[in-house]
Amino acid sequence: MIRSNRFTPYLLVAPLIALLLFIFAYPIYKLFDFSLKRVRGFDGENIGFANFEFLFKDPVFREAIVHNLQLLLAVVPLLLVSLIIAIALYERLRGWRFYRTLVFMPYILAVPIVGVVLKNMFQFNGPINETLRNIGLPTLAQDWLGDKNIALWTVLAMVVWRESAFGIILFLSRLLALNEELIEAAQLDGANWWQRTRYIVLPQMKGVIEFYSVIGLITMTASVFAYVYIVPGKGAPANGTMVLELYIYNWAFEKHQPGIGAAASVLLFVVAATLMFILFRVR
């Protein structure tokens, strides 16, 4: 430890404290305050829990929650896809570095940009459906973004497509850090590739798999705004892709009722805090 003037450390952390108070503490305090008010402009009168009552009665809010819960299912394909591809890369077949560069590319492209491209690909008369018709599977051609029952799953597939790139790299780096003596020993004992992977490699991946699962849950709960804003377009069709983040955005900024947006934010804040608590427990 460095001996110093007793005021020096406080001077060094002062800017941090000021920034955190300004960007986190004050807004979170105000959030709880606004959630109990009918906010007009900068403030408003206290109305108790009326905003929350409104939320629980609003069918759109319920839809948004259900959609976020459905999106949580993405964690399963995210894990599977990332694991399979990471394990395939780990075998370091010829040219594996080149494949690694390619499979990571989706993560470099920004969500709004990817969103616009995928949106066009999944149009009813777009290239996806055209390909399906060309290869003799016209019944599989769907209105991917226009059908209320399908749009959310299309968005889910897009999220998996992009976010698994990160899972692959995370898992691959864990794999490359494994102690390979164990694997070689198993090989000398006559274990085949599948047995080595199943009984030696996967058990050692437990920690990083749990870690990535929680990251996946947080992503699906609180960072899909750009996807639903761009791809089907602001929660279309008929709120088929309405999620919590977009719900907050709509009430606070499109319908100018920050109180209701704040109440929904309070609920999201509580959920996120719980997930983060789990994340630290997992680690």
Partner: peptide, 19 residues
């Protein structure tokens, strides 16, 4: 400071906008 990593940005947006 570390636990603030968990707060989703969208949560701060409404009060920050008013401020």
């Amino acid at each position: 400071s570390t636990s603030l990593m968990a707060v989703p940005p969208v949560v701060m947006v409404v009060p920050l906008f008013v401020l």
